[in-house]
Computed example of a mutant assay.
Amino acid sequence: MDVTIKYLNKLKKITGKSNEKISIKENSTLEELIIGDICKRYEDISNYMINKENSNIDDKIALFVNNEQVKTSYSVILKSNDVITILPPVIGG
C-alpha cells in the first residue's frame, strides 16, 4: 500500500523533495515507517528525528497523519493513501 510523506523545513532540504509516495506493508505503524524506512532512506534525517539516548522518535518532532497530530503513541496503524507530515523542531527566534 502507498502513503504520502510530506517533508517540511530542514527535512525538505535533506531529502531534496517536499513530498514522496512510499510503498509500505499492510498494518505498518507510524513508528515503523519513520525508523524502519525514512531514517534508512535518508540517513541524515535520523540526526533530526531520532533521540540518541533511547533510539526512539524525538519528542520534539511533530508528526501528523491526515492533518491530525500524533502526540502520544507512534504505534498508529497506517492506511492506504494516508498523508504523513513531518515537522522537525524549529530553532531560532
Rank of each mutant, 00 (worst) to 15 (best):
V3W: 00
V3T: 10
V3S: 07
T4Q: 14
T4S: 10
I5M: 12
I5H: 09
K6Q: 08
K6C: 09
Y7H: 12
N9V: 05
N9I: 05
K10A: 02
L11P: 00
L11T: 03
L11G: 01
K12L: 12
K13S: 10
I14C: 04
T15R: 14
T15Y: 13
T15V: 14
G16C: 08
K17F: 09
S18Q: 12
K21T: 13
K21L: 13
S23M: 11
S23R: 14
I24K: 13
I24T: 15
K25L: 11
K25F: 08
K25I: 07
K25D: 09
N27K: 12
S28N: 03
S28K: 01
T29G: 04
T29S: 15
E31P: 15
E32T: 08
I34R: 02
I35L: 11
G36H: 07
I38E: 05
I38C: 05
C39K: 01
C39R: 00
K40H: 01
K40I: 04
K40D: 00
K40F: 00
R41K: 15
E43L: 10
E43M: 05
D44F: 02
D44Y: 07
D44K: 03
I45E: 01
N47E: 09
M49S: 04
M49A: 08
M49Q: 02
M49L: 09
N51H: 04
N51Y: 05
K52H: 10
S55K: 13
S55E: 10
N56K: 15
I57Q: 07
D58Y: 07
D58K: 10
K60H: 00
K60N: 03
A62I: 04
A62K: 07
A62T: 06
L63M: 12
L63E: 04
V65Q: 14
N66L: 06
N67G: 06
N67P: 05
E68R: 11
V70R: 09
V70P: 03
T72Y: 03
S73P: 01
S73G: 06
S73Y: 04
S75R: 09
S75W: 05
L78T: 07
L78Q: 04
K79N: 15
K79P: 11
S80Q: 15
N81V: 04
D82H: 12
D82L: 13
V83C: 10
V83A: 11
I84R: 03
T85F: 02
L87F: 06
L87Y: 06
P88G: 11
V90S: 00
G93S: 00
